[in-house]
Design a protein around this nucleic acid. Structure first.
Lengths: 341, 341
DNA sequence: TTGTAAGCGTTATCAC
DNA sequence: GTGATAACGCTTACAA
């Protein structure tokens, strides 16, 4: 294994000089630099993680983590838990993480939070991107300061960021279509239901992938109401119940996004013993129960743990080792059924 | 963060003494030990990974990896690739890995390999367990020498080992049953096919889980021929073809283990356009194609990458940090369909 | 029984 | 521009 010491010896310089070259720091004679670079290449130098880890401790890295928080954000809670675990893990390496929980969406409140983040002078930021100008300008300010940001859960490209970690919603919808085909024998009718309608960022992607895959691969499988989703919320499931009752040929129901898990009970009741497959996304504790009871046939997960831990890990790797992550890390789209849990 | 130095200072002893206590090495005054131990507890000492990694390099750890190798072991090839990647990764930490590829099963050949492994004086062994006395006595000899072993892929308990990494075959069969139910609407007939029959170690577990789940959860779903598998091999698919042709009510076919992927084509031909769901295990390149073509409806993976990498990682963690792994690490049983790849 | 010191590889801070 | 040195936290061989 080649070390900086080896390079220094062969180049006839000190470790410090080699380090300067490696980290593109100024103050090295071009000739020396060329010689050192050649040796780095020739000897196949690879930095040693353990050594770097030990050394970066002294920098006392500080990260910020921004996420929604509240009873309506079940999925984000899983992400937060994973992030907290990762933060605890990183403590050992001299990294501290400050969590900023967003509980409202009004502008002055958000401005205040962004201000607080900025004042904490983080070395890196992991954030769930918001579609507001205040968020955008905040990220841009930090970017100007050279502070890297990693986005998670929502793939927004309006602000500069190092990487995105999360779901490929279009692909996710395509898998849902395949799953629907599996459950229905690739023919018949499938209904669409959703808690957050077309204005939700994830809805569009999933619906696009779903209908695209349906027309491309399963022409005998058609959507009830031409794909118009039955919307539900706050205990009001009438649209969904109507859809189930008025379409006796409907063999599957695709719930694009869940809000109130009570909808499954209502669907089951409205189906009156007929064989209706229910396909959902994610695997909140409530959904695990519904899967067990057979009220959900299958669900597609999007690895909240990865979405919570990887942004922090990526920032650490970037700051500590200079590792540039791939711009998009899509989580796996695993299918869970009753027996999987 | 609490370090050994901190403990030493507060205890009024040297780092060496604290280290002796931490690693249960002899030669420490019981009183001193008690005082140090109390402080370790009280101050919440956690060893620092980076520091340990750096220090263990000097031990130049050496591991051995034993696995089947040959054209008939497609799945094991994926494991081997993952193990090689992990070995390359561990090189940086001063770890070398020797691979021992088992190409035959006759006793003298095996004895020779085991002898070679022993002569290489490994600090740890990762092995696919064989049901032979020579393997058993080999593992026992190494165990007596204090060399830890991690098994993978087959969960055999006849020889002492630190941990098992691999599939829970019974659970795997249960997931297959649930998947069959999903594809058939939980009723009708399902056929069983297999390349390696009842004498294969994985077959028993999967079939047990499958039939158990079927009777417990899906009473309207019955097995063709009472669960007698149609066996196939070396291009001879007559049993399977007969099963498909003679049972027009059969709505699904569960292939418990694959040998020749050509069987899917034959099944498709024999089905003559009728809707027959085919459920398999694993995801070899050939299977990916079949999934894409619709000749396989769904497959259950058992994470060969984890089975290859984790045994080596566990041995390193055990030898470097003293981390005792949980005795059984079951791989995730993820379901893949056409759209998943 | 305990302490000391060197070393694992990298980085930062001086001094020159 | 460059070199020396002291960390970062841990282990180990050797000295006391």
């Amino acid at each position: 294994m080649v070390t900086i010491k080896d390079i220094a010896k062969r180049a006839g310089v000190s470790r410090g000089t080699v380090d300067r070259v490696l980290n593109n720091r100024p103050g090295v004679n071009p000739e020396t630099e060329a010689r050192v670079r050649a040796l780095i290449e020739e000897m196949g130098y690879r930095p040693n993680m353990a050594g770097q880890m030990l050394a970066v401790k002294k920098r006392r890295l500080h990260l910020a983590f921004l996420i929604f928080h509240g009873p309506e954000f079940v999925f984000h809670l899983d992400i937060l838990h994973a992030a907290r675990d990762k933060a605890a893990e990183l403590r050992e390496f001299g990294v501290t993480v400050d969590f900023f929980l967003i509980r409202q969406l009004d502008t002055p409140y958000l401005e205040q939070i962004f201000h607080d983040v900025e004042e904490s002078h983080p070395d890196g930021i992991a954030a769930l991107p918001l579609r507001t100008t205040s968020f955008m300008s905040f990220i841009q300010r930090m970017h100007a300061k050279g502070v890297p940001t990693v986005f998670f859960n929502l793939d927004e490209d309006f602000a500069p960021h190092l990487a995105y970690v999360g779901c490929d919603y279009v692909h996710s919808g395509r898998v849902a279509a395949g799953l629907t085909a599996l459950c229905t024998g690739s023919q018949g009718q499938v209904g669409i239901a959703a808690a957050d309608g077309p204005n939700s960022p994830s809805f569009a992607g999933r619906m696009g992938g779903f209908s695209q895959e349906l027309t491309a691969t399963y022409p005998s499988l058609t959507m009830v109401d031409g794909g118009m989703p039955a919307l539900f919320r706050d205990g009001d499931f009438t649209e969904v119940v109507n859809m189930v009752e008025h379409n006796p040929d409907m063999k599957a129901l695709y719930i694009v996004n869940m809000g109130d898990y009570g909808v499954c009970q209502e669907i089951h009741r409205a189906a009156r013993g007929r064989n209706l497959s229910v396909i959902t996304h994610d695997l909140a504790p409530a959904q695990q129960e519904l899967l067990k009871n057979g009220l959900i046939s299958a669900t597609i997960v999007q690895q909240p743990d990865i979405q919570g831990s990887m942004p922090l890990q990526m920032l650490y790797d970037y700051l500590a080792f200079g590792t540039v992550p791939k711009p998009k890390l899509f989580t796996d789209l695993h299918i869970y059924i009753r027996q999987s849990v």
